[in-house]
Design a protein around this nucleic acid. Structure first.
Lengths: 119, 119
DNA sequence: CTGCATCCTAATGGATACTG
DNA sequence: CAGTATCCATTAGGATGCAG
């Protein structure tokens, strides 16, 4: 009884997953790539709007290394690079969608409350 | 066409949600509280095993402020404090469960690959 | 257009000692 | 037992300039 292994759990798949989609922009990037199917570097930068080139590049590289997004380079002048979700990346979409809806509800709640207090 | 609003999206519910469950321990804490229904401070510390009292307390306070967990104090000696999920916190469980399974699959994949290479 | 390099600040997290 | 308080290390993130 009461024996649901209350012991140290160093390797945890929850932790593993959160490390892969944590950070300031990863969730949004995955979501926008899902909405638009494919996005160029500059387009992503415009949508995220508060991101620097350094952070965007760094984040995209991490997502690529973790095999969540594809990077397709067109060897043209000027250069053109398109990003899209991999199959593994697409597997995360249902959960991000779920999370997005939850976030929406919370934001609505907060707005209602502040309106109440303002009366 | 191609007009899925490729414009700046400053307030994003995906971003909102990630800020609430981001951080090194929040996901795991919510998950363990779901598994055990209720956990005392010391029990949480043992399960997380690599957390300091400072981080644990700080994280629990944030989750409490965001109304994701309950904190119940028993005024005894020695003191006893129990943590549990709120209704809002429970709403996050299906999605953490999804993420956990996804993480499991990825970890398995990685193991298979490294075994292949070791042959 | 799509970055990379450098330098810097802010935020996060950790070690340790102490307390009601 | 369940924390606080203090100080320190690490990392995440940002500003700016330059380049293929």
């Amino acid at each position: 009884m009461e024996n649901k292994s209350e012991t140290c759990q160093p390797t945890c798949s929850v932790d593993y997953a959160f490390r892969r989609i944590g950070g300031k922009y990863k969730g949004r990037i995955l979501w926008y790539l899902h909405e638009h199917k494919t996005l160029r570097y500059g387009a992503l930068k415009r949508i995220l709007c508060d991101v620097t080139t350094k952070m965007l590049t760094q984040t995209l590289r991490e997502l690529e290394t973790d095999n969540l997004i594809n990077r397709k380079v067109y060897h043209e002048v000027p250069p053109k690079v398109e990003y899209s979700l991999t199959e593994t990346g697409r597997e995360l979409i249902p959960f991000i969608e779920y999370l997005r809806q939850w976030g929406d509800r919370q934001i609505e709640k907060e707005n209602k409350n502040s309106q109440t207090y303002q009366l």
